[in-house]
Design a protein around this nucleic acid. Structure first.
Lengths: 225, 225
DNA sequence: CGTTCCATTGATTTTACTCAAGTCTAGTGG
DNA sequence: CCACTAGACTTGAGTAAAATCAATGGAACG
């Protein structure tokens, strides 16, 4: 969870793509021909697990890159779907591959990006294993906020572009639990919730919830595992 | 979870390292000078999460590579500790970096390796979110078995080199739960357990447990999330 | 060969899930 | 433009899976 994966690849961009809400930039299994920089809008990446259940892999804000994980294989391992009308820059994978070795700087950026995404995956796994529902939601909100801030958007008041169900799937919670936790955090005055509009009212408190230092209601522990 | 990340890097190896049980090849935060191929023995990678809790990131069998995730940053993001006396091949990172752009094939292997590890991380996250304790343990045993088999070891009878606590931490379960599930799987006759010695007696059944098709005791669902 | 770490098993509690009912919101068509 | 509808969200009550607490047994290690 963190900084957007900004990468300057202007000379490689093939074309702009308009992607209406609910449409997929690519689907799991598609030939891996391109990666995409998110220009505007929000995407989610998702896939069907071996036992047929749908899993949200991540959310992608403007300025971030999707599809990099396809460079290793012939096909896209996940699908990328627009949560709202979006606009993308398509970057052909072959150009990226051949010219990556050509230009050390670009190669370096790629390696960096992989490192970044593996760090994020590691943190997600940690979150799923070690954190309570409250900690996960608090962490999610703070991460979302900081990613928006890094792109120049308001950090303390924003619109969630995804459903409670998507958030829950991503964090390993049921949508009812997501709803309850948001309500609880709102009741303690740490955030304000108006459907998908979120305002962070007390960032420090939210931070302490995310680290398990503070626990909203009565339960005294917060420690898991 | 899957295939070992075999990579032929003989010409780059600097030296062999003997690593006694409980010693670390490197620790989180160390300068990222080298990556390591596991020659013999088993390692675990682990790190301290933001809230100070220890998390097992993965287990690494002979023939696999550790430390690749450090290429992106200046320091190692995780620690690598020997679960038993081990022997490693040290590969200097700078040689890998400079010569990776030199040799397209090696560069390709690196990209591939990142793709593989991100696939594994994604599956781990899925496992943690969507799977019951029984499914996780069954999946873990089958993965462990197939990784051993890929290196020429017996696939159906092996020794777990890590504690129940390590397994539990990795899978997001408490050690007691790990113990209980192993006992349950043994009672149904799918595996045999003698402390850390595991024998897979009915691979198909274990497979069906791992996919949630079969559920050992009484509970009828197996579905989560 | 005793000490320490690891594993098992049982009883109880807790967290988040499930099931269910009802409300709100945004998008649609009359 | 308003009414209608479908999807999204909230809230409540009861349940289940795994965590926690606790005590004992077994293996490994110096």
């Amino acid at each position: 969870m963190s900084r957007p994966d900004v990468i300057r690849v202007a000379p490689l961009v093939r074309r702009r793509v308009r992607l209406p809400k609910r449409d997929a930039a690519y689907s799991a299994g598609d030939a891996a021909r391109s990666i995409y920089a998110v220009r505007a809008g929000t995407l989610k990446t998702h896939f069907t697990s071996r036992n047929g259940r749908e899993k949200v892999a991540g959310f992608h804000l403007p300025g971030e890159i999707v599809g990099l994980d396809s460079l290793a294989s012939a096909t896209h391992p996940v699908s990328a779907t627009a949560l709202e009308d979006a606009s993308l820059c398509e970057i052909p994978a072959d150009a990226l591959k051949t010219r990556a070795t050509e230009f050390a700087a670009l190669h370096h950026r790629l390696v960096e990006n992989f490192g970044e995404s593996s760090r994020r995956d590691r943190e997600l796994a940690t979150m799923l294993v070690l954190m309570s529902a409250d900690e996960r939601i608090a962490t999610f909100l703070l991460d979302y906020s900081s990613r928006l801030a890094a792109r120049g958007y308001a950090a303390s008041e924003f619109l969630l572009r995804m459903t409670r169900d998507d958030i829950g799937n991503y964090l390993g919670l049921k949508l009812e639990t997501v709803s309850r936790v948001l309500t609880r955090l709102a009741n303690t005055g740490f955030i304000a919730v108006r459907s998908r509009h979120i305002a962070i009212l007390d960032r420090d408190a939210l931070q302490s919830v995310s680290t398990g230092t503070f626990v909203p209601s009565q339960s005294v522990d917060g420690a898991r595992n």
